[in-house]
């Protein structure tokens, strides 16, 4: 286990270093931000001064060196546009993204698992067929377009739900949370549902497949023969075995949701990090782009590592496999 952990950690560090070099050199190559930011009537001295202030007059390898040195002490540079530290900008918006992601994940589990169980238990019914057809749509529909349709139907035509922003927030331990106020709750419904659809489809399919398989096994037949109620057989005996693949997938998909929120946040004007980075790319705000990449890659590495560890703890078969290899 510890060998596995050390190997994974080293791999993670290498990925992070490679990423930082690629992102830094790449971002350096995408045009000159000074021309975009400075007033049109600026003199050449003004341009040179601005360049110097932003540290853009130094050679690239030196800029990278300074960047890495600063990054290690938690300083990822100042945003050219907002004139505040890039990391602060990201941290201000991270709670909004996390909230959206977590609510979306809960929605996809809360709706997906029951529908999947139903479709697995009664695969021949019309409703089950409907669920499966719906899940195919969930895979196929581009999420940004579904978002637009949700806005059109619930925002414009019916006028039931707000479609932009977070609404009212409450501070819990200094972190603003939307879902605890009625207004915020209404605001999160559409974006979270939009984000959850793809994962919901996946969870429905996994649960259904697992359910169909497990219901045929001997131990379920035995439990039935013992005279246990269907509810007990399904929710206690069968569920335990379905949970293993489900937990892994949910863990892995959390990262996917985090990335998918880039699109959803832009559609619903949700003030999270995804929307920040999309607008920063448009404005060539280098420090924010670089900071976003590093933060999100770090998050991913941590999530993937955590899922691997949890998986090996939950399922003993994985642990055995690791030791053998």
């Amino acid at each position: 286990m510890s060998v596995f952990l050390i190997r994974r950690l080293m791999q993670s560090v290498i990925v992070l270093i490679v990423m930082s070099v690629i992102v830094f050199t790449g971002v350096f190559a995408i045009g000159d931000p000074v021309e975009l930011l400075i007033a049109e009537d600026a003199t050449e001295e003004d341009v040179a001064l601005a360049r110097q202030q932003m540290g853009l007059d130094k050679p690239i390898w030196q800029q990278y060196g300074i960047f890495v040195g600063n990054a290690l002490s938690g300083d990822l540079g100042k945003s050219f546009v907002f004139r505040t530290p890039a990391l602060d900008l990201l941290m201000q918006r991270l709670p909004a993204t996390f909230e959206l992601t977590i609510v979306a994940l809960l929605m996809s589990i809360g709706i997906g698992v029951p529908l999947g169980i139903y479709a697995g238990l009664y695969p021949e019914t019309l409703f089950a067929r409907g669920i499966m057809a719906g899940s195919i749509l969930g895979f196929s529909l581009p999420s940004f377009w579904v978002g637009l349709m949700l806005i059109m139907i619930f925002g414009v035509m019916l006028g039931w739900l707000p479609t932009t922003g977070r609404g009212e927030t409450v501070d819990v331990f200094g972190i603003p949370i939307s879902i605890l106020t009625w207004d915020g709750f209404l605001h999160i419904l559409l974006p979270a549902f939009n984000l959850s659809l793809l994962k919901m489809a996946l969870i429905i399919r996994l649960t259904r497949a697992g359910m169909r398989e497990v219901m045929l096994t001997d131990y379920v037949k035995f439990a039935r023969a013992k005279g246990l109620s269907t509810r007990r057989v399904v929710f206690v005996h069968a569920m335990k075995n379905i949970m293993i693949p489900l937990v892994t997938v949910i863990g892995l998909e959390f990262g996917d949701l985090l990335a998918g929120s880039i699109v959803t946040e832009t559609v619903f004007a949700w003030p999270g990090i995804g929307r920040l980075v999309v607008s920063s790319i448009g404005l060539l705000d280098r420090p924010v782009i670089v900071a976003y990449m590093l933060v999100i890659v770090t998050l991913f590495i941590v999530i993937n590592l955590a899922v691997d560890i949890i998986y090996s703890l939950v399922d003993p078969r994985v642990r055995l496999l690791q030791q053998k290899s």
Binding site: Q11, V27, I30, A259, G260, M293, I296, F300
Partner: peptide, 23 residues
């Protein structure tokens, strides 16, 4: 190993990073 690492990141994210670099 490279394939493993790449597949562990969502496609939208990789494409976003690449396009922010490529233009």
């Amino acid at each position: 190993r490279a394939v493993d690492v790449q597949i562990s990141f969502p496609t939208v994210l990789i494409a976003l990073i690449l396009l922010s670099l490529l233009g």
